[in-house]
Amino acid sequence: MEKFIKLITTVVPLDVQDIDTDQIIPARFLKATSREGFGENLFRDWRFEQDGSSKSDFVLNDDTYSGSVLVAGENFGCGSSREHAAWALVDYGFRAVVSSYFADIFKGNALNNGLLPVQVSSEFLKEIFNQVKSDPAKEIIIDLESQKILISGTEISEKFEINAYKKMCLINGYDDIDFLISNRDKIEKFEKEHVEF
């Protein structure tokens, strides 16, 4: 997993609520057996016509916006548990998603793939959308160490929450399996005492 420390980047605004993982990556593209290549079909049906031509009104097809952070409406990542959604976002080049609310499973999947979910207040989210719409070159700064997100060139910033352990994993590029494997003795001891019916 790539280490995550600090991002300074322009952003891609996608002001839609309740974006579910079927939109992020539709089921018919889940046939692959590796983790790579899903970026190609990220937001497939919003991004492309059925014949494969680009939909010019979709933000990923709009040259005005670019950057490694996706800013999305409330309740991002609801629906299916498919980790392919996180893989698709990472494969496309995103390192973080900013929203005012994330669905649980998506949040966990994102963190397990070095994609930082940054949950901000709805006011702050609105502010980013406004600033970026009036100036697409506007950068934001996400500093994981201090858990702070800042709209560059302004004083507008907010702290965001992240589990201390998960933060340490992201900063060091570790994952949960390494940690769990190191607890093998405890797990085996537990199994000996675990009564099942």
Binding site: R82, A86, G108, D176, I177, L180, I181, N183, R184, I187
Partner: peptide, 13 residues
């Protein structure tokens, strides 16, 4: 429900 990284975690541990 869990994601695939967690499927791997459960397989491993």
């Amino acid at each position: 429900g869990i994601g695939t990284s967690q499927v791997e975690q459960v397989m491993a541990t």
